[in-house]
Design a protein around this nucleic acid. Structure first.
Length: 647
DNA sequence: GTTTCGGTTCTTTTT
DNA sequence: GAACCGAAAC
């Protein structure tokens, strides 16, 4: 362990927060003020003070944030932080529920429904109740209602009423689907993401002995991005820390961009009331951005007068103003970004110093095409998450079923790939097998074979052979080997027939197999992938799959907490950003916070792209107004450019 | 009765 | 792309 001189490695604001005495601590950390640094040094400080790292709990919102913090902490104090419990709220809840879920009536082998699973399940419930017509809310909407109900501890009827008060939607129908969905999850011994949190809370509320155990275990609780906590998460943190516990939370109300999933920045605002003795520290010295960018950010904050006003103090030297770029359409925008990125590169920027940010995934389409055409390497944090792609879920079905013979969804997914087996057939067979299917038992496999229609026999034989070979090798708990043999024996051919981009998908699967090496057994692997959204979160930022320096393309949400030397912000037009929906449902101020998050990602250069027209689906064009967020910034704070590539 | 196929439509943000 | 829908095929 190297000798850390806290006084010289931190500024006054940071040092005060890092060395804060025990008890409740609130750190208000504006963008770019060294929030992560502060948390990491706090961990180091506690460890140096002699706190056993196993008695630290570090909660974050993303896997990436957790990984980064643990890594940096390890860099500071070495292996002595290896025992720290660090991860997302969902991870921690899962870890605890695996151990004590039986108290809530869950088997310890419960499955976690990812977004795709929940959506399908919800869709099936709606169909079952004959509520799946055009005018009924879509599964995603129903999921989010259920989630809001659970994360705000409100009745589904009330949540639905807020949303559908003046429509023809029958609230009772929503409740019926919701109840069916809840019942189905129980039947499946499954939890969706919201259940992990609400059951985590329920466990603590109803079983004080368990709560005591964890409260004793964790001497210090640290929470990152506290402004994004929802009701449940805040309550859960309150419980595990205890009223007199050592709880340090870090956040910035102005970076609260998750209210649509229940986050409530009142949690951070009311923290001092809930912890009357709490010490409050503010970090306002911004090390990241040049003053010109910060001036724009500060004007943006003023757009939300109902929020706590703050100003970022710059320490960097003046450089140049953010650039407001007017262009005709998406193609010109793509052309501009590429042309300017190349120029930046010739000025000494690395490709990984550059990011392109946008409100919604589809807004990156034209740019992606253009980058691909010109063979410029880029990485994108894609809309479809790695582990939710159909081919990945396909090859995980068999390992899942080996691991948990009661996993109905995995069973149906597996059989669904076989010829002439669809929803109905797999449902019937599942019932005939007694609603579980232990493929490790030869007798079960034989029974399954006898129930299948003739065209599916061939696929069954390969699975039978795989299971058989494992009997000898005792490889049932090696996920990589299961997937490998499944692909070799069946999926390879299947994928070739099914997908036109067969090659790319097989590369993904190979990557998945490599990824399994990290895990000791099947259970650990399956547990992880349910809560992991992307593989590339693990790889070096700025590097593509082959380790090539690349430009990153990302939604603003996914860029939170990160920084780049140059930021391009696309589609700054009213209706696109802010999205039109936000303007009717009153979330304009959240969009403005999102805009703030976007511009504060930039260290040196910021390009605000404002296209004037957009092609509509039917081949016409939409005239766009520049985003109100851009118009709110005083013109003299920006320099203007206009692109006329084709005129 | 089920599955498969071919055409059409849509795309906010994440664990 | 992928989810959905209706029509054709098993």
């Amino acid at each position: 362990m190297r000798n850390i001189v806290f006084e010289s490695e931190l500024n006054r604001e940071q040092l005060a927060a890092v060395t804060a005495p025990d008890g409740a601590v609130l750190v208000i950390a504006a963008a770019g003020t060294g929030k992560t640094r502060t948390l990491v040094y706090r961990v180091a400080y506690l460890v140096e003070k002699g706190i056993d790292s196993q008695r630290l709990l570090l909660l974050t919102f993303t896997n990436r944030a957790a990984a980064e913090m643990l890594e940096r902490a390890q860099g500071l104090v070495g292996e002595s932080v290896s025992g720290i419990w660090g991860g997302t709220f969902h991870h921690m809840a899962n870890r605890i529920l695996r151990r004590h879920g039986d108290l809530l009536g869950y088997g310890s082998d419960y499955t976690i429904l990812d977004q795709d699973d929940s959506k399908r399940l919800m869709r099936d419930c709606a169909r079952e109740l004959k509520l799946a017509d055009k005018h009924f809310p879509k599964p995603e909407v129903l999921i989010s209602l259920s989630g809001l109900a659970s994360s705000m501890f409100r009745k589904i009827e009330d949540v639905a009423k807020d949303r559908f008060e003046h429509t023809s939607i029958d609230i009772a129908d929503i409740a019926r689907v919701h109840n069916r969905y809840t019942a189905r999850k129980r039947e499946l011994n499954a939890m969706d993401f919201d259940d992990l949190l609400s059951n985590g809370l329920k466990l603590f509320r109803e079983h004080s002995c368990i709560l005591e155990r964890y409260r004793d275990k964790f001497q210090h609780v640290l929470v990152d991005e506290y402004q994004d906590t929802n009701y449940i998460q805040a309550e859960w943190v309150d419980l595990i820390a205890g009223p007199d516990g050592n709880l340090l939370v870090v956040g910035d109300d102005f970076q609260s961009i998750y209210s649509w999933r229940g986050a409530d920045f009142k949690n951070i605002m009311t923290f001092p009331e809930r912890y009357p003795g709490a010490r409050i520290y503010k970090l306002e010295t911004n090390y990241r951005s040049v003053p010109e960018i910060l001036s724009c950010a500060n004007e943006c904050i003023a757009g939300n007068p109902e929020q706590f006003q703050k100003s970022l103090h710059a320490v960097r030297d003046p450089y140049k103003k953010p650039v407001l770029v007017g262009m005709r359409d998406g193609n010109e925008q793509a052309g501009f970004v590429i042309e300017r990125a190349e120029r930046l590169r010739s000025e000494g920027f690395r490709m990984s110093d550059i990011v392109v940010l946008y409100r919604s995934h589809f807004q990156a389409l034209e740019l992606q095409l253009e980058l691909a055409r010109r063979r410029i390497p880029y990485v994108i944090t894609s809309g479809v998450r790695f582990f939710e792609q159909s081919h990945i879920k396909d090859v995980c079905a068999l390992p899942r079923l080996f691991n948990n013979p009661g996993d109905e969804l995995a069973f149906k997914r597996l059989l669904g790939m076989w010829r002439r087996v669809g929803d109905r057939t797999s449902e019937n067979i599942w019932n005939k097998l007694g609603r579980r299917c232990d493929l490790r038992k030869p007798a079960t496999r034989e029974r399954l074979g006898s129930l299948l229609p003739a065209p599916a026999q061939e696929a069954w034989r390969t699975v039978d052979a795989i299971a058989d070979s494992f009997q000898d090798d005792d490889l049932f708990s090696d996920p990589g080997e299961i997937i490998h043999r499944f692909v070799k024996g069946f999926y390879d051919l299947y994928a070739m027939e099914m997908f036109d981009n067969y090659n790319r998908r097989m590369e993904d699967i190979q990557e998945l197999i490599n990824y399994t090496v990290k895990f000791e057994n099947l259970d650990a692997f399956l547990n992880e992938i349910a809560l992991q959204s992307n593989l590339d979160a693990e790889t070096e930022p700025g590097l593509g799959a082959e380790g090539v320096e690349s430009i990153r393309l990302s939604t603003i949400h996914q860029a939170k907490g990160l920084e780049w030397r140059a930021v391009f912000l696309l589609w700054l037009a009213d209706g696109l950003f802010p999205v039109s929906r936000a303007l009717v449902d009153g979330s304009e101020s959240e969009e403005r916070r999102l805009f703030y998050v976007a511009i504060t990602r930039a260290k040196d250069e910021l390009y605000l792209c404002v296209p004037r027209i957009r092609k509509t689906r039917d081949g016409g064009v939409d005239l766009l107004d520049p985003s109100r967020f851009v118009q709110e910034i005083s013109p003299e704070l920006m320099s203007s450019e206009s692109i006329h590539a084709f005129s």
